[in-house]
Structures are given as C-alpha cells and as structure tokens.
C-alpha cells in the first residue's frame, strides 16, 4: 500500500499542498487529476524527497523518510514529467534502471543485462536499442524512459504525464503495459494524466487535487456517479458506443 498521510508543502508563504491524505491499495492504478499548478507534481516530488514536506509518505507501513536514496529507489520508480535530453543510447538509458541494485561504478551483472533486455523488449523498442535517445521522437523517448522504469523493477510506479507525446495507438499500448504491470506483477501505480477521456481507460481509483487540497478520492464509478470530473474541470460528459461497447468522453 502507498499511503500519503497529511502531506503539506509550503513554498515561501504559499501552501502548495494542504493536508493531503489518501492511500492506494496494492495492485491498483490510481489516476491523479488536477488543473495546472494544483500540486500534482509536488505530491510526486515528496516520494523522491525532492521537496521538503510535513506529513508522511508510507510504503509497506514504513515511512519513506527512513529509507536511503537507494532503498527508496528499490521501492518506487518515477517517470519524470520533463524527460532529460541525453546522448546515451536507449540500452544505456534503460540500464540506469538497474542503478539501485548495482555498485557505485554501475557495472551490470548478467541478471541486470537480462532485465534491461527484457524491459526494452516489453516496451517494443528492441530495434531502437542502439539509437541515441536525443535522436528519438517524443513518443519513442517516452517509451525508452518507461522501459527504464520497468528495468528498475519496483513494486510501486509513479508516472507524471507519461502519454503527453504519444499518439492514440502508442497511448493504448502504454496503458496496456501499465495494466499488465498491475495485473500480472501486482505493481501499484499512481499516474498523472491530463487527457480526461483517457482516465476511464486505465484508472481503478481517482484522486483529484484542486488548489493544493484533495477534493476527491475513490473508485472510478463513484467519481462518475458524483460527477467529480465534470465539476472539477467544468466539462461535459458524452457517452458513445464504440465497437459494441460504451466509451465515455469529456469535452
């Protein structure tokens, strides 16, 4: 279980997060929603200790503050909102995922190399292995960073807007991969999304932050019943039929 307990972050005189508390059960995907500047990325930064905060982030009933940087990285992997420009090849980049498990020199064991190859293969970018990340398209780059997360092999995964540059096919592939991570490997996922119509495709639970405060946390069905998305983002809901099934859009 990933648990945020009374998280408060203050920058200067401004409260960026105000007493935010919710917990994500093992094997579930929680989508974190909020307008720009609502405090979503700040909440994610508490997990890597990148911001000073009051309260507690707990994993397996242990405070994350009690773990070393390496110990934390063995528990939680983070997909960054801004992907760094780097001249490493895809294989070298994905190898960084093994960083918490290898010596400070970064020498990979046979097992590490196999994990890297598997991660690249699972994301479907084996043909890009030796390409420089700098020369990849936005979508390919996001897949490479997602492969790095897979190589890190943590029970908790946090993704900050991972589908920004992806086309609709690549988005579906990514969401499918995330679902596989939870269904087959029991991973717990917190994911920040901006495209509201995508939320229902992937979420088990929804957390909504507005102006630094948690305004809703619960299952998708309850969010739909209570019209949480409509109220928070001032959008309308459209129910459409698609391939014999039902699809919900917000616009």
């Amino acid at each position: 279980m990933l648990e945020f307990q009374n998280i408060t972050v203050t920058l200067g005189n401004k409260k960026i997060l105000d007493n935010v508390s919710f917990s994500i059960q093992k094997g579930r995907i929680c989508v974190l929603l909020g307008k720009n500047g609502s405090g979503k990325s700040t909440l994610i930064n508490t997990v890597t200790n990148a911001v000073k905060y009051k309260g507690n982030v707990r994993i397996f009933d242990e405070s994350l503050r009690d773990f070393s940087a390496r110990g934390r990285a063995k528990l939680v992997s983070v997909f960054p909102q801004i992907l760094p420009e780097t001249s490493f090849t895809v294989k070298e980049l994905v190898s960084f995922g093994r960083n918490p498990y290898v010596s400070s020199m970064g020498m990979l064991s046979l097992y590490d190399r196999r994990s890297v190859a598997e991660a690249i293969d699972r994301v479907g970018i084996s043909d890009l292995s030796d390409r420089t990340v700098l020369n990849l398209s936005g979508g390919e780059r996001q897949k490479a960073f997602f492969a790095m997360m897979l190589a890190q092999d943590t029970p908790f995964m946090i993704l900050d807007e991972p589908s920004t540059y992806l086309d609709s096919v690549s988005k579906r592939e990514l969401y499918s991969l995330v679902k596989t991570c939870t269904a087959e490997y029991g991973k717990t996922v917190l994911i920040v999304l901006h495209d509201l119509s995508d939320v229902l495709e992937i979420a088990d639970d929804i957390a909504v932050i507005d102006a630094g405060k948690l305004t809703f946390f619960g299952e998708v069905k309850k969010a739909l019943d209570d019209q949480i998305i409509e109220k928070t983002f001032s959008v309308r809901r459209f129910d459409c039929s698609e391939n014999g099934g039902k699809r919900i859009f917000f616009a």
Partner: peptide, 25 residues
C-alpha cells in the same frame, strides 16, 4: 571518480531522475 562513475552518469540525467534512480544527489 571511477568508483563513483555509475552515480555520476545517473546525475547527468538531471537531479530528479537521478534521485528516482537512488542517487543521493
């Protein structure tokens, strides 16, 4: 520097990514 080369390499990806990879930035 050779002993720390793995950490230094991770640091070249930026502070946020390095921290998430377990580097005490």
């Amino acid at each position: 520097s050779v002993l720390l080369s793995g950490r230094v390499a991770a640091l070249s990806l930026g502070d946020a990514v390095a921290a998430s990879l377990g580097v005490n930035v």
